[in-house]
Computed example of a mutant assay.
Amino acid sequence: MTNAATQHAASLRERWQAFRLINPKVRIRDAARELGTTEAELVATGTGIGTTRLRPEFEAILREVEQLGHVMALTRNDSVVHERKGIYLNPSFNPHVGLFVGEDIDLRLFMGPWAFGFAVSEGDKHSLQFFAKDGEAIHKIYLTERSNREAFEALVKKFAAGLQSPELQVETPKEKGYVFEGISAENAKLFRQEWAELRDTHDFFGLLKKFELPRREAMRYAPEGLAYQVSPGTVRLVLQAAAEKALPVMVFVGNQGCIQIHTGTVSKLFEMGPWYNVMDPEFNLHLREDAIAEAWVVIKPTDDGVVTALEVFDAHGEMVVQFFGKRKPGKPELQEWRDLVKANAVRIS
């Protein structure tokens, strides 16, 4: 690193320390924006002072997380935070995608953007934190009171980078949003036909790619009855109804490098400021309701019958959270979920 990079890291550390003294409750993601930097760079300023840089051997690190025992997995984007406690089980990786599939921790990992890893200890909080090339947080793993602290320390020692420097080079983030000019009438007709003929929900992504359709815009080209826009308040109504009926749901939250899934019931729901929250013992969800630009009920045919989702988009057109009824491949969707969504969806189109 250059002397200028060293000076920048030292200056950022001072600014970050001063900011925290004045704003102790501001989240690091928000602080990074206010300081004109990235979350990864702020975390890196603690290197050697409770923070250890890890070698970017992400698959190897993640394969050993099971040894930590019961932990809390955290994945978020700008609008939604998803926190799920459990044990990391059944890892599998290819060069581009990783999976953890368990009753509690259920992850889809897209390894291309992964660039930086840290172990962070602040007081009695200990975590592994992973960031993209642009410095945005991808995934974090926090120890709980039931975790194996010795295994954590051994993992950190094993994967600690040779050079423990607070200097970090990140890429300029891509501009969010997109320009969409529509598709031809012929392609719109073909798209509707192929949507109506879907046999697996996982084929929907390929369908969007084939017709070069952003996901939110695709809703406007849906076959009759297979997608309709609903009020942002529908999200709260659906969660409340699911809680009242103890109906198990699936909640998907993702970013550029990870999708995290909760499958199970939700119970303790409440509003705090702009956030609507699920605060159950093993699952927490924090949804910034004022960031919801559009919400859609989306129906996809499959060999097992239709699958009904509630999809939520931000102002940039990015999907920030999806809700489904609990289901498994090879089994039909619960009729109770379909009825619940239909009864609580506040249509606006």
Rank of each mutant, 00 (worst) to 15 (best):
K25W: 08
V249H: 07
E244S: 14
V235M: 11
T52M: 07
G117T: 01
V26L: 13
L107A: 06
A44V: 05
E318Y: 06
L269Q: 03
A196I: 07
N90S: 10
E57H: 14
W296F: 15
T45K: 07
K133A: 15
P332S: 04
F313A: 07
A242I: 05
F131G: 10
V307A: 12
I61Q: 06
G182F: 07
E333R: 03
R29M: 01
V97H: 15
L239E: 02
E171N: 08
Y228R: 11
E318T: 14
P166E: 00
T265V: 13
P173C: 12
F116C: 00
A40G: 04
R216L: 15
A188V: 06
E39T: 02
V346I: 15
V238A: 15
R33L: 12
N3C: 02
N344W: 07
A18L: 14
V321Q: 12
F159E: 02
T51Y: 15
N148Q: 04
G117S: 06
F204P: 05
S121I: 11
G325I: 01
S165G: 02
F204C: 11
L109H: 03
A4N: 10
N3Y: 11
R192H: 09
L239Y: 01
T75L: 00
F130P: 04
K209T: 05
A295W: 00
V230N: 08
A295H: 01
A4E: 14
L239H: 02
G46Y: 15
K189W: 09
I87Q: 07
P166T: 00
P214T: 12
R55G: 10
G86I: 02
Q67Y: 05
G305Y: 13
H82F: 12
R108D: 03
E39D: 08
Y142H: 14
E34V: 03
D106L: 01
V249T: 07
K189H: 14
E34N: 12
I28K: 03
K209L: 04
L226C: 07
P329V: 00
P113Y: 14
